[in-house]
Each structure stands twice: as C-alpha cells, then as structure tokens.
C-alpha cells in the first residue's frame, strides 16, 4: 500500500452544488473518489491511498491532466484505490465532479 499527495494551484472557483460527493467503490480494479469543498488557499489537494505500489508517476500524469482540464480552487480529492487503470481513474474523477455539481435530487 502506498500513500500519495498532490497539490495543484487552482484558477477556477467550484460551481455551486453539493458540499461533497462520493463515487466509485473500493474493489479490485476500481476506486472511490470523495470530493469536498474546503478552504485550501485556492488549491486542489489530492490524497491517495492505493493498494498498488510504485505508480506515482502515472498518478502524477493522470491527476495533472485532470487539474489542467479542471483547475479548481478549494477542492479536496480523497481516493482509495485498488489498482484502477488510468482510464478508470479519469472517468471516476469526471463522474465525481459531475456529482458534486448536481443540484440536490
């Protein structure tokens, strides 16, 4: 198991919506992503616990891509991962962001 932390400077305020959103599941080849609105001095912080060691560079690439597309401010992203592929991680991040912006059902 490995713990990784990333921090990206944000440029966009989060659109209105829920206080937090949780998508995905902690299961083989999958992950859960928790988004929370928090005052973080304009940053997006990402905290990952992953069962697969040694993939820090790939996480950096996938999350850097997400941060480039969504340079969001004051957002904490927490991930529990069990070896999800980069494509699954990207989809879950997009899904989580969509869920966060949904108005209350």
């Amino acid at each position: 198991m490995e713990t990784l932390r990333f921090r990206f400077d944000g440029r966009q305020a989060l659109p209105a919506g829920e206080h937090h959103a949780l998508v995905g599941v902690v299961a083989s080849g999958n992950l859960e992503v928790l988004l929370e609105r928090l005052p973080l001095d304009g940053a997006m912080e990402i905290h990952i616990v992953t069962a697969a060691r040694g993939f820090g560079e790939i996480w950096q690439a996938v999350l850097g891509d997400f941060a480039a597309r969504h340079p969001l401010r004051d957002l904490r992203i927490s991930i529990n991962d069990v070896g999800a592929t980069p494509a699954v991680v990207s989809l879950r991040l997009s899904q989580a962001l969509e869920a966060l912006q949904e108005s209350a059902p």
Binding site: M1, H20, L22, V26, L34, A51, S78, N80, V82, A104
Partner: peptide, 29 residues
C-alpha cells in the same frame, strides 16, 4: 427525493482500523 440524511457519512472517514495493518485500503463509509 432529497429526503435522505446520512449519519456518519464519508467525510467523517470512519473507516476500518483493521485494514491498514493488512496493507489494504479501506472505504470512507
């Protein structure tokens, strides 16, 4: 619709204390 209120939700991070020693990620809920 919109009537559900969660107790001890994922932001509380009440995850299992027994999985980390087994080198396994827990779940927030």
């Amino acid at each position: 619709r919109a009537s559900f209120r969660e107790f001890v939700g994922p932001c509380r991070r009440m995850a299992s204390p027994h999985l980390t020693p087994l080198d396994q990620p827990g779940a927030f809920d």
